[in-house]
């Protein structure tokens, strides 16, 4: 039981950890890319969504840090 728990904890930390927004963002990227896979804009859409996810994740961390400094 200890090892099963450790196994799931490892994958939880690895995939989600302290950045759940990246995990959710990657799922959205894959979901949208799957729907738009056959369209002509799919190869531009996928990297654009990855960049948006990264910007939101960094922006979220920066905002938290700035608010903490101002307090």
């Amino acid at each position: 039981m200890k090892y099963v728990k450790a196994f799931f904890m490892f994958w939880f930390d690895f995939l989600i950890g302290d950045t759940p927004e990246i995990f959710v963002g990657a799922l959205i990227v894959l979901g949208v890319a799957a729907v738009a896979a056959k369209s002509s804009i799919s190869t531009e859409l996928l990297p654009a969504l990855v960049i948006v996810t990264l910007v939101l994740s960094v922006g979220w961390a920066v905002t938290r840090s700035v608010l903490k400094t101002k307090r």
């Binding site: 950045t19 990246i22 995990f23 990657a26 961390a61």
Partner: peptide, 27 residues
């Protein structure tokens, strides 16, 4: 490739985010 691609996207973005925050002085 879908599963591996997804894993690499998550792991890569985590590394990139950390490196960006360190480089810009927030971490």
């Amino acid at each position: 490739r879908i599963v591996v691609g997804g894993l690499l996207l998550i792991y890569g973005m985590q590394w990139l985010r950390k490196a960006i925050l360190r480089q810009s002085g927030f971490k």
